[in-house]
């Protein structure tokens, strides 16, 4: 059914720390690698070895410049499905292929039912759904549903591929429906942001804003010049310099 379930107590999602993300794209690459070989795979590539390679990815890392002058900074911004509570990508689906799970809030596509009408991708303001031209169905982030419940894995590994691979620990996975969970506390401490809140999709994932920086370049300008560690001249002129400086 494409009518949305009553939101359950468990709302699994990601918290992405924009203060820490270094924009290395490892999350996007490991996402592609895991999912192209996992239950959702293969994720099609078009002309992968040509000048204009394209293909289906669940996660894309943008880089932005924010602010001007000394207050300006570079912010790396991974973008994937936010597993919204009010997921209109689900309600517009004419076939029932799009669904939101009541038990954990994950938004999924049943690829055996999808007719590839693309309407769900139009309904998603975050650009999180990508059409697979080779298979003729829509694709999206599964929150690695085939990893996070895999009891054959050690418990520490039962996290989405993007979270497990992030070398900077900028990505966190957990239950945002539980106010006592690590991710919820992180969101509360750092004033985690929902994207495009004005559209009313009520996304589950949160982004932690960059921390306030120091006073910027002006701090360096005021620091005292360093003492030279080498004598400034050698030979006769150096001897003269040292003699006159004394």
């Amino acid at each position: 059914m494409t009518t949305l379930p009553t939101p359950g107590a468990v709302r699994l999602g990601l918290v992405i720390d924009l203060d820490i993300c270094v924009g290395c794209h490892a999350c996007a690459v490991n996402c592609k690698e895991w999912n192209t070989g996992g239950n959702a795979g293969p994720l099609s590539d078009y002309q992968p070895y040509e000048a204009q390679p394209d293909g289906v990815w669940f996660n894309r890392v943008h880089s932005y410049e924010v602010g001007d002058g000394p207050a300006g900074q570079t912010v790396h911004f991974p973008r994937s499905c936010l597993h919204c509570d009010n997921a209109e990508c689900v309600t517009v689906c004419p076939t029932g292929a799009s669904l939101k799970r009541a038990e954990d809030g994950i938004v999924l596509i049943n690829e055996d039912v999808c007719i590839g009408c693309k309407l769900c991708s139009w309904a998603c303001p975050y650009g999180a759904r990508e059409f697979d031209e080779d298979v003729g169905v829509m694709r999206k982030c599964t929150l690695c549903v085939d990893r996070i419940y895999d009891e054959a894995r050690p418990e520490a590994e039962r996290v989405p591929a993007c979270v497990s691979t992030c070398p900077a620990s900028a990505r966190h996975f957990g239950d945002l429906g539980d106010p006592a969970s690590d991710v919820s506390r992180m969101v509360a401490d750092r004033e985690g942001m929902a994207l495009m809140p004005e559209l009313g999709y009520r996304p589950t994932n949160r982004y932690l804003p960059p921390r306030a920086k120091g006073s910027g370049c002006s701090a360096h300008a005021k620091s005292p010049a360093l003492e030279p560690v080498m004598p400034e001249g050698t030979g006769f002129l150096g001897w003269l310099d040292r003699l006159l400086s004394a």
């Binding site: 924009l18 924009g23 943008h62 880089s63 932005y64 410049e65 924010v66 602010g67 001007d68 207050a71 300006g72 900074q73 570079t74 912010v75 911004f77 303001p125 975050y126 942001m193 929902a194 994207l195 495009m196 809140p197 004005e198 982004y207 804003p209 960059p210």
Partner: peptide, 15 residues
């Protein structure tokens, strides 16, 4: 609002 970064200043795509 799309990036949540609007409060920090003007947001410009870099890469």
């Amino acid at each position: 609002t799309a990036t949540g970064l609007g409060a920090l200043g003007q947001v410009r795509p870099l890469d």
